[in-house]
């Protein structure tokens, strides 16, 4: 083992013309990518008023329910709000397209491919995905083409044999010390390790780091299909009835609480 380590001598030219360029190119590509993504980002789409109303109608019931066990409002008001919400949920007043008419076939969940709104979200996800995939593929091709089988650097600490596949990808040598790092492995180390540097240069929420996108799919940007608010409203109606059973006004017995605090009763 020690024999082979001594016998290997790296040309300083490799350091100057391979190791540094690979690192530099990867850093620059990351920074470039950050700015390209900024350019590609379309401004958040404005929702029409009806859509916002539909989205937020659920929140009304949730706010009412959140405090129902110790509600700040007296029973009359609680019940009137609760009933009103139940009725409107039942009638579908809050639905974007108006209440469903009798005899309407229950709407099939629309295919995201035909819905332009969902398509937009998917496209923007694809675009960022492309911006990350293309340069990484180019760099990898570049390294594979010019520097295949290069050994670039020797780590200053010993490692176990398990790291061999990680550090010496592209160099099929059984006996070489694990401390030597091949060009392709150096690429991968940079790929996963440069995020800290980007954060230093570009700030916290940069989009230069491409390893993060590896796990994200372009379809994750769009929620799982358009939501069927009618169904959600019907479910929320049950929840409302349930909390009406739990309801207790905070003013109930408050006089006893105050009096006992002053030791009057």
């Amino acid at each position: 083992m020690s024999n082979s380590a001594v016998s290997l001598y790296l040309d300083p030219q490799i350091r100057d013309w391979v190791l540094f360029p690979i690192t530099l190119v990867m850093i620059l590509v990351g920074i470039l990518r950050h700015y390209v993504v900024l350019l590609l980002q379309s401004p958040p789409k404005k929702l029409p008023r009806e859509a916002i109303r539909e989205q937020r109608a659920m929140a009304r019931a949730q706010i009412l329910r959140a405090t129902s066990a110790n509600s700040p409002i007296p029973p009359v008001y609680y019940q009137s709000i609760s009933r009103h919400l139940s009725e409107t949920f039942e009638a579908g007043t809050y639905l974007k397209d108006g209440p469903p008419r009798d005899g309407d076939a229950p709407k099939m969940p629309a295919n995201p491919m035909t819905d332009p709104a969902a398509m937009d979200g998917m496209m923007s996800g694809m675009k960022t995905q492309m911006v990350m995939m293309v340069p990484q593929m180019v760099i990898m091709g570049w390294i594979n083409f010019f520097f295949q089988g290069f050994v670039l650097i020797k780590l200053p600490f010993p490692l176990t044999l398990g790291f061999k596949s990680m550090l010496q990808r592209g160099v099929e040598t059984q006996d070489m010390d694990v401390r030597w790092v091949s060009s392709l492995s150096w690429y991968f180390l940079n790929f996963f390790g440069l995020n800290g540097l980007y954060r230093l240069i570009l700030g916290g929420d940069n989009s230069a780091d491409s390893s993060r996108d590896m796990t994200a799919t372009p379809f994750a940007a769009a929620p799982a299909g358009p939501q069927d608010y009618n169904k959600l409203f019907k479910a929320e109606k049950d929840n409302l009835e349930f909390s009406e059973g739990l309801y207790k006004w905070i003013g109930e017995g408050v006089e006893d609480r105050v009096l006992s605090r002053y030791h009057k009763i």
Partner: peptide, 17 residues
């Protein structure tokens, strides 16, 4: 009371306090 709120029974105690 239009809201059907019950008048507390310890009214005089509350008033004193």
């Amino acid at each position: 009371s239009p809201s059907n709120t019950v008048i507390p029974k310890n009214l005089h105690l509350i008033e004193e306090l």
